[in-house]
Design a protein around this nucleic acid. Structure first.
Length: 449
RNA sequence: GAGGUUGUAGCUCAGUCGGUUAGAGCGUCGGAUUGUGGUUCCGAAGGUCGGGGGUUCGAGCCCCCUCAUCCUCCCCA
């Protein structure tokens, strides 16, 4: 006999957890739909070539590869096998992988269906993704993302709308958040102003850590990445700038940087004319790792709870280009449903009404009343009531304990006198009150609750 | 990929210096004159001490390996 187990970083979800998760999905979905996004689903697995090279070197390492079927060593790259070179060997023994996010499969879908789609195309997608990360707090190997993307327009309207979606969804979930925004062009502007455009990626990785390691840590990180003292001084000056206005002077020799500032000002200009329930703020240290972002970028953090980012996204000018269709600019955001769950659970934000869907349980004493209960249950279900019958007649104590454990709000007792009067003795489990009622009375009573 | 934490009953955890038959609370099941639960009382079941090896007269406790877990870094949702 073997001990049952599930893979590292995966989880089962019990009835209560599924209800709570569905609450999150339903809330986010309804906001997406209100903003005109349409549903899409793509396969759990993609061809490996679709996934590799889209998430940077780090991302490629975290892809789950699927071993080919059959005699997969028959076609293996013999040289790589002999040299024990795993990286070289992979492509010859695994041609598929589990999706790493929802954005890249979406881009693939858009390219494959470009003839039938009308642009701008707005889609949302709520599905699991897989990453071969080391599991830890707020990090799983299988987790759900809830994405909304619009592709085929470079209008900054969408940047503003996506910020509104974040704002409304988190407000409805009850999580106070800070929505941080930046622009990759601004980050590039910093690199240009500092005279190190070739070290753009190294620089962003370093300044991304500012709030975590402080300015000293960033300095150390920058010097480790061979960035000169003079460049560092410029970077520090820029990081200390209070707003986009102050940055304009520094970016005088960087057209890209100024363009990034223009974009941010436009988006904040649009948002400024609306009322938001959460803070949306410019954060120049926000970098984001996914290599395909080119314009505005977002990240969402819970305000009063320690957790990594619970949402992120941004504009990618040309993600479809690698699939042979250039010129389709896209922008999108993602909600990290599993982290949102952890935050809501930790802060006690789930509504109490989610615990049980059964409204009434029927209890009986003997075979005749049991059969009568079965008829009553059928009638109640026809009227739309969620009913459970205790599976065997007998001791009421056990039946009541079962109902209490399941949080079923009403228990109806059926005995000889009830059968004669064509009623059920309905007990309110919360108040303890009970009353003889007909099936019709029960239906209308439950409908009014 | 690097570093660390913790593995004892279904759950949360005690377990002294290495010493007889491994404990508690909660939960589960049964009962307290058979038409009423979440309170109380009584009783019972439930353990290969994660697994393997070693040291020792003797190991839950010490050593090695291994698996799992959680956390930190990296990176990310």
């Amino acid at each position: 006999m073997q001990k049952p187990s599930i893979p590292e970083g995966t989880r089962d979800f019990g009835p209560e957890q599924v209800r709570k998760r569905n609450f999150i999905f339903d809330t986010i979905r309804s906001v997406f739909e209100k903003f005109g996004f349409q549903p899409l689903e793509t396969p759990a697995m993609e061809n490996l070539g679709t996934l590799t090279g889209k998430y940077g070197d780090e991302g490629d390492k975290l892809l789950f590869k699927i071993l080919n079927n059959g005699d997969y060593l028959k076609d293996a790259n013999a040289d790589a096998l002999a040299a024990r070179d795993s990286n070289k060997l992979v492509s010859s023994i695994a041609k598929r992988g589990l999706r790493y996010d929802l954005t890249v499969p979406f881009a693939r879908y858009v390219v494959m269906n470009r003839g039938t789609l009308s642009f701008p195309f707005k889609r949302f997608q709520i599905q699991p993704v897989w990453r071969a990360d080391r599991p830890q707090r707020g990090r799983y190997r299988e987790f759900f993302q809830c994405d909304a993307d619009v592709i085929g327009s470079d209008s900054l309207l969408y940047e503003a709308e996506l910020a509104q979606i974040y704002d409304e969804a988190f407000a409805r979930l009850g999580i106070p958040v800070v929505i941080k925004m930046n622009n990759r062009k601004v980050l590039f502007g910093i690199a240009e102003a500092a005279g190190i455009p070739d070290k753009f990626m190294d620089m962003t990785v370093a300044i991304d850590k500012l709030d975590k390691v402080g300015i000293e840590g960033v300095r150390k990180e920058l010097s480790e990445r061979d960035i000169s003292e003079t460049a560092m001084a410029t970077i520090e000056k820029i990081l200390a700038a209070p707003d986009t206005q102050a940055l304009r002077a520094v970016f005088s020799n960087s057209a890209t940087g100024l363009n990034g500032l223009d974009e941010l000002d436009r988006v904040f200009g649009l948002l400024g004319k609306t009322t938001l329930q959460n803070e949306v703020k410019f954060d120049i240290t926000l970098a984001r790792g996914l290599s395909y972002y080119t314009g505005c970028i977002y990240e969402v953090a819970a305000k009063d709870f320690r957790m990594g980012s619970i949402g992120g996204g941004g504009r990618y000018a040309d993600l479809t280009g690698v699939f042979g269709v250039p010129g389709l600019s896209g922008v999108g955001i993602s909600f990290g449903a599993d982290r949102i769950y952890d935050v809501m659970e930790g802060m006690g934000l789930f509504p109490e009404t989610l615990v049980e869907s059964v409204q009434i349980m029927l209890a009986s004493f003997d075979e005749p009343s049991f059969e009568y209960a079965f008829q009553c249950a059928t009638a109640l279900r026809k009227a739309g009531v969620a009913v459970e019958i205790y599976p065997e007649p007998g001791k009421l104590k056990k039946q009541f304990e079962f109902a209490a454990k399941r949080n079923i709000p009403y228990v109806a007792i059926i005995g000889e006198s009830e059968m004669q009067s064509d009623t059920l003795m309905v007990k309110n489990q919360k108040t303890g009150d009970q009353e003889a009622m007909s099936v019709e009375q029960i239906v209308s009573m439950l409908a009014s609750v």
